[in-house]
Design a protein around this nucleic acid. Structure first.
Lengths: 187, 187
DNA sequence: TCTATTCTATCTATTAGAAGGTAGATAGAT
DNA sequence: ATCTATCTACCTTCTAATAGATAGAATAGA
């Protein structure tokens, strides 16, 4: 693994665990054993680093979603697999999605990062909307709003469930809510 | 308004807008025109301040909930009024709930703050559970899980909707999701 | 091929500022 | 004489970022 990849991966974990304003180049430096100046060589500013973290995370996440599409045709099964991604993201140490972290810390963040976060939402919502529409046509899902609107609601509800699980350090809060939300739109 | 109240209110706004690690005693100092040392007199450590902010916010929020109970007997109407609280919290400058902010920034926070955040969840979930049960009995709501579980899911979904609205600086993301979630459990 | 140069990736050293917090003085009220 | 609330002044640590040196790899020209 290259140094810049190591930096990204370490920064990703620190972001997910502590938030953007709660980790420093110094923290990364200690963890991977290079000086902070070397990190600045790869990512001149912390915002560059944040943007790269978000971008890599988004691409990785979309790859996981593509895998779900490849493995099943059932809308319900796909939605369940999608929900499992959230549980997997959280892991055993209650990591949040990097995008949740960046949203709460976003007040002073440059647009380049905000756009990356929005792209993450849009990518997920687009996929969800098409999966929901498929389920609607096949009559395995039922809801009043449009698939697009329902996708937005579901995705944000999933993110919210992670927040709750972290607050109590109780993963069952996440898994139970994920299941229950899915059940709410099942026929 | 006393100085310590001014400090709390200013800190609350900064917390909601920027997060715990993104505001300082210096910021409060400038905003209300006293020196940082004076803030330390009222709140010795930043954690004391955070705890007090969360506590006051929780009590104020519960007062709003009690008002809802006093104004209507309809479970649906009460749930709708509850949802409006989230919209009101966010305001026009996309403030988050202080508890969402503290959860994402919580990694290094002392238990005294975490407990206050959990109490906020529990208070809300308890009220929601009883309102949901009432609606279930009156057959205006319909859901498979227990009222307690459904309350947890709804509350976290509402919090997640705020996150999404902030990410896009688009309040309709919040209001639409709130309405849609309520509709999902209506008979 | 040999030499000169440029590029890559790291280091040391340093800066300017901000952070949270403390000590001690002071003025006014009780 | 004590308590309350504020101040000035200071401390230590951390922060993001920059400048300049260095060693080695890659590249270009004779």
């Amino acid at each position: 693994m290259t140094t810049s990849e190591q930096i990204i991966d370490t920064a990703t974990e620190l972001l997910q665990k502590h938030g953007f304003n709660a980790f420093s180049y110094g923290d990364i430096s200690k963890l991977i054993g290079i000086k902070t100046a070397s990190i600045h060589y790869h990512y001149p500013s912390k915002y560059d680093l944040g943007k790269s973290v978000m971008k890599k995370y988004r691409l990785k996440h979309m790859a996981a979603i593509n895998k779900i599409d490849a493995e099943s045709d059932s809308p319900l099964k796909k939605l369940q697999s999608f929900a499992e991604l959230f549980s997997h993201t959280m892991g055993k140490d209650y990591k949040m999605s990097p995008c949740s972290m960046l949203i709460t810390d976003s007040s002073g963040l440059p647009d380049s990062i905000k756009v990356e976060v929005q792209d993450f939402y849009i990518d997920n919502e687009t996929w969800l909307a098409s999966t929901l529409k498929d389920g609607l046509d096949k009559e395995v899902f039922k809801f009043d709003a449009s698939p697009t609107e329902c996708a937005k609601t579901l995705f944000s509800a999933f993110e919210g469930a992670m927040l709750s699980a972290r607050a109590f350090e109780d993963k069952s809060r996440l898994t139970k809510s994920l299941k229950q939300i899915i059940k709410l739109i099942q026929t």
